[in-house]
Design a protein around this nucleic acid. Structure first.
Length: 734
DNA sequence: AGCACGCCGACT
DNA sequence: GTCGGCGTGCTC
């Protein structure tokens, strides 16, 4: 008995029905009738009428309680000729939906993000030589027949092109019976990677780590490994061996990367090892390519996908391994529509599929570190650099002892180091994680500060563009010449540095040096790639960059890395500030020393004793992580213990901050407040329009609720805020 | 989420 | 007189 077949009419004629997840925020699947001549099974991808339009949906396992009026049932329009979603994929979608409190239809929609891909790609028309030679021979015909003699099929235009003729020659031969038309399967988007294409280049601890991973793959069960290795230690080469083993088993592999790390150089590295590129999956893939990749992933034709977080929802035919590279990267969090952290959901995907997951980072997230300490993850440690690479010498520059000149932001120590580097013909990288010229502008006459009219943040001056901009909401206006408050001209003062201002200072000290600013607002991705290539070739002496210089690219001549303001970001109230700063500074200083040249890092700070600075210069982060775990416990951030807590949710960070301020004043029993984005998975307990969560923890949750009710009742922005008391089990994703 | 329906302001 | 803004409500 087909369990999808429900007898809705007692003795009346039987009507086949099926539950279908539709791309809509309904709490459960909808019922559709199945035409007599149609066969569906759980996982079938179908087209159904919904309101006035046709949408793609998935036949689901169960309907749940069903009280829908049978008269409302509409028939499934068609079943796509496409492999059904596997049982694992369906279980994954249900799990993610339940965990993130997202309607299952919206999660399923993420797996169907390739509009026209559900029907098979059309076959390619090809020609094969029949052995029949034409009565009359010509030179052009001769050339064509010489090519086809080997018996392989050709496309009509391909053959004409290869023979240097027009396609009418081919048509003429076909009319003589020289060719038969055959249909060829569409070409694969990428060639099959060969696990034994190039021998692995492994040494020392890499060999053991790779052997451990291969062993895990051979066991073929769920397990999580954390590759914890410093920059340049060869982490990629190690997980490539795990991939090779999965390929030998004939199963598929998913490599998750933060979008920005999906570079040509990564794909080339993969190709060097496996003889073919992985298929790419990210948001700006051309639609046609997107469909092909989706299709070939479902059929198993594509064996390895390298993708951004959304690739996690691709319906693999037989996934056998998931890798999460740069697992600490905040880009894994999706904070719109469906809120999830792809790193955590990758672990869930592996558990449901009963295969290994590998998390990779030079600076693991505190969450992963805790999971490793608790024995949930196996740690593979790579403590040394690979090959020629040597770690840069790192030194703190105490800005209290070596202050910059008046009006400047670079310490004399830093300026001397830049000078020596440039003299040697090497490159210097100055890192400041702040776009624009100055983060705050004020009037020296009346004290007016330029503030965004739409939100509350300061307007940032962008001198190259002649604008002042809000980095929060995107508001921008031309830089005014006079103070809008008191009308005074020429008395507006720029406060604090941005990369543009550092460039100005550098140009003053080194007028002959070739200086370039790399900032996301100054160039598109294409332009950026060109600039990065030019820099790698030595076409710049001093590079000044924001966050985007932290990732990926290697600069062989880069022997000095200078952090302009290492303290930036430590004081913004984010409970993860120290961890983020540590990760960012590690990445940036890791840009130096990738070749044999001796390299240095100078870190300007007012807090040389801060644990982040100590961890960075000592290269030993153990104490730092231990401390961070303690701080997290105090702030009640995941992934710790089971807590009785209260969560307030708000529509914006500003609103959440307002609530936090109010709470600190009005509720003395509070022991911790943390403001979280919606993808903090274990806290994904409130849905709706609310975008930020304020997790408040106190001695007694009933007291907390009372405080919160009072505060929200009196607050000016209470609209849309709700209260929930919850028990959180932050480890529940395992 | 998407789309239709519905009720009030500036324009061919 | 219409085009079009986005508020409200519904979809098996």
């Amino acid at each position: 008995m087909n369990r999808l077949t429900d007898d809705l009419f007692g003795g009346a004629p039987k009507l086949k029905t099926a539950p279908v997840l539709v791309p809509m925020p309904a709490p459960r699947a909808y019922s559709y009738s199945v035409p007599d001549d149609m066969a569906v099974e759980p996982g079938s991808i179908v087209q159904v009428p919904l309101g006035s339009r046709l949408v793609a949906g998935v036949v689901w396992d169960r309907l749940g309680e069903d009280d829908v009026d049978p008269k409302k049932l509409r028939p499934i329009a068609k079943v796509f000729d496409c492999p059904p979603l596997t049982k694992e994929m369906r279980a994954f979608i249900d799990w993610v939906a339940a965990y993130t409190l997202t309607p299952p239809g919206l999660v399923a929609r993420m797996a169907l993000r390739a509009p026209a891909a559900f029907d098979p790609e059309p076959m390619i028309e090809g020609l094969r030589f029949t052995g029949v030679r034409p009565e009359r021979m010509t030179a052009a015909r001769e050339r064509v027949l010489a090519l086809v003699d080997e018996g392989f099929p050709w496309t009509r235009s391909g053959l004409a092109h290869a023979a240097g003729t027009s396609s009418s020659v081919i048509d003429g031969l076909a009319a003589q019976g020289s060719f038969e038309t055959i249909f060829l399967p569409p070409p694969p988007v990428v060639a099959r990677p060969d696990p034994d294409y190039a021998a692995p280049r492994l040494e020392g601890p890499q060999t053991d780590a790779a052997a451990d991973l291969v062993e895990q793959i051979r066991n073929g069960h769920f397990a999580v490994a954390l590759i914890d290795g410093i920059t340049g230690s060869g982490k990629t080469e190690v997980y490539f061996e795990a991939i090779a083993e999965v390929l030998r088993q004939g199963r598929q592999v998913l490599i998750l990367l933060p979008e920005i790390a999906l570079t040509a150089s990564f794909l080339e590295r993969f190709q060097d090892r496996f003889g073919a590129k992985p298929a790419e999956w990210h948001s700006d893939l051309a639609p046609r390519m997107r469909e092909k990749v989706w299709r070939q992933v479902t059929t198993g034709e594509v064996r390895v996908v390298a993708g951004a977080r959304s690739a996690l929802f691709l319906p693999f035919e037989d996934l056998g391994l998931v890798i999460v590279d740069e697992e600490h990267d905040p880009a894994y969090k999706q904070e719109d529509r469906v809120f999830y952290n792809a790193r955590d959901m990758a672990v869930v995907r592996a558990r449901i599929g009963n295969f290994p997951a590998v998390l990779v980072s030079a600076t693991p997230s505190v969450e992963s570190r805790v999971n490793a300490d608790n024995g949930r993850y196996q740690v593979l440690h790579l403590p040394t650099r690979f090959g020629e690479a040597a770690l840069p010498d790192l030194h703190l520059v105490d800005l209290r002892r070596h202050p910059p000149q008046r009006g400047g932001f670079l310490s004399p120590v830093m300026i001397r180091a830049i000078g020596k580097t440039v003299e040697r013909g090497e490159q210097a990288l100055l890192f400041l994680n702040r776009r624009g010229y100055a983060p705050l502008t004020l009037c020296r006459v009346c004290g007016h500060r330029f503030q965004c009219p739409q939100c509350a943040s300061w307007l940032v001056e962008h001198r190259f563009r002649g604008q002042i901009q809000c980095h929060h909401c995107g508001y921008a206006e031309r830089t005014p010449e006079a103070c809008p408050e008191c009308g005074t001209f020429d008395h507006l003062a720029a406060c604090g540095p941005g990369v543009e201002r550092i460039a100005e200072e550098v140009e003053k000290h080194f007028p002959e040096a070739r200086t370039i600013v790399l900032s996301s607002d100054l160039m598109g991705v294409k332009r950026l790639r060109l600039e990065l290539e030019a820099i790698a070739k030595g076409e710049a002496d001093i590079v000044i960059g924001t966050q985007l210089v932290a990732k990926g690219h290697n600069f062989p001549l880069m022997t000095l890395v200078g952090i302009v303001d290492a303290d930036l970001g430590l004081s913004n109230g984010d409970p993860r500030a120290a961890e983020r700063t540590f990760q960012l500074l590690s990445q940036v200083t890791g840009r130096a020393g990738r070749t044999g040249l001796k390299s240095h890092g100078l870190i300007q700070t007012y807090q040389p004793l801060h644990p982040v600075m100590q961890a960075i210069v000592s290269g030993d982060a153990r104490d730092f992580y231990e401390r961070e775990v303690g701080e997290r416990e105090k702030a009640m951030l995941p992934p710790f213990g089971r807590l009785a807590s209260v969560i307030v949710s708000a529509d914006s960070r500003a609103e959440a901050e307002g609530h936090a301020r109010g709470l600190r004043q009005s509720a003395p029993g509070i022991s911790g407040i943390a403001i979280l984005g919606p993808a903090e998975a274990p806290l994904a307990l409130i849905r709706g329009r609310h975008r930020f969560r304020l997790l408040v923890h106190g001695q007694r949750s009933s007291d907390m609720q009372a405080y919160l009710r009072t505060m929200l009742a009196n607050g000016p922005k209470e609209r849309g805020s709700i209260l929930v008391q919850v028990d959180i089990d932050p480890q529940s994703f395992l």
